[in-house]
Design a protein around this nucleic acid. Structure first.
Lengths: 183, 183
DNA sequence: TGCATAAAATGACGATCGTAATTATAATTG
DNA sequence: CAATTATAATTACGATCGTCATTTTATGCA
């Protein structure tokens, strides 16, 4: 079969958006092409027409998730604003539309070179965004280090808060990390 | 077939040890029963005789990895000692025998209740160990919070350092986190 | 010591995975 | 406007996944 060019582009985008969400929710190796295409209302083979392989889709989905999340960043937001949102219960409980770094970090090691490069570029972008909002009195190199340490704390706290079974402990992790970051 | 009781117990342990390592290296959903039993020198079905299901094996492997790692903790070690080892290049480059929290955290959410409970218990144990080594002048509650924040930073830095493709950035992440933790 | 029983690894099974050949229909061109 | 071409989704395929029935043999008891 063949459908109109616009419809095909729309279908492609639906698969991409579904992948972006489902991979964050269930993990990259935890979601099959079946689930990905079904979520977009198509049969599993259509993925191959649009992306060539699951590996390629992963690369695009990683880039798409990071780019979409980057567009949500407010230019006038402070680091404290970001920390508060990041370490909130809402963010913890909605990984599908949450931080791609926290959702995908553990699986990146076994992904394709292209996917890892896009992930790495995203981390660098995030570090730059944070660094530019650090106290301007400290020197540049030190600001970058602070940004890296902050991002590590954010990601670590979020993944641990999501991993543990005990709601109280989960809340404690988020709160302790907020305090540690001076939020 | 059936083999001697001792031999069976030894086989069971080999599967468990292989699972403990492979799941940390490739992820839980990234390793099949094939690879797990083959690494122990048996056919894939033997897993079922010993553990009943992959889910059960996951539970035992998570507990085993955490317990084994806990036994490595030196009673006379300081928090700084631990931070230095944890955020080393050696630890980053050998996930198979490294921290189970960092290796498995992102996948715990979609695991069985039993597996998550063992993971959670492990986190609590680690927090207790860290907390007991925090500055005794600060009050207990605050020490626990410091321990939680420290663990978050450690895990976050390690998973990010492993995820990124750029060796320099990876080293920078570890160093920045060490500095941030005052190590 | 011989028979019954329990148990552990093997091998066979259905389900699901990712891929490629097939089919059907827009888009292109004479 | 008709014939060709290009392409997107369907469908069929081999490989691999996790599970269970079978087989073989160690163990317990008479």
């Amino acid at each position: 079969m063949r459908i109109s060019k616009e419809k095909a582009a729309e279908n492609r985008d639906r698969i991409l958006k579904a992948a972006s969400r489902l991979m964050r929710e269930r993990g990259i190796s935890g979601v099959g092409v079946d689930a990905l295409t079904e979520a977009a209302g198509m049969t599993h083979g259509s993925l191959y027409s649009q992306f060539g392989s699951k590996e390629r889709l992963v690369e695009e989905a990683v880039a798409d998730a990071i780019a979409a999340k980057g567009r949500e960043l407010r230019e006038d937001a402070t680091v404290d604003d970001y920390v508060s949102e990041y370490l909130s219960a809402e963010h913890r409980d909605d990984p599908g539309s949450g931080c791609p770094f926290a959702a995908l970090c553990c699986e990146m090691r076994q992904q394709s070179k292209g996917a890892r490069e896009r992930f790495t570029a995203g981390v660098k972008g995030m570090v730059g965004w944070l660094s530019s909002r650090m106290d301007k009195e400290t020197k540049l190199k030190r600001r970058d280090d602070q940004a890296l340490a902050t991002l590590s704390s954010l990601v670590g706290a979020l993944v641990l808060a999501r991993a543990v079974n005990d709601p109280k402990l989960s809340d404690d992790i988020l709160r302790a990390a907020r305090n540690g970051l001076g939020g």
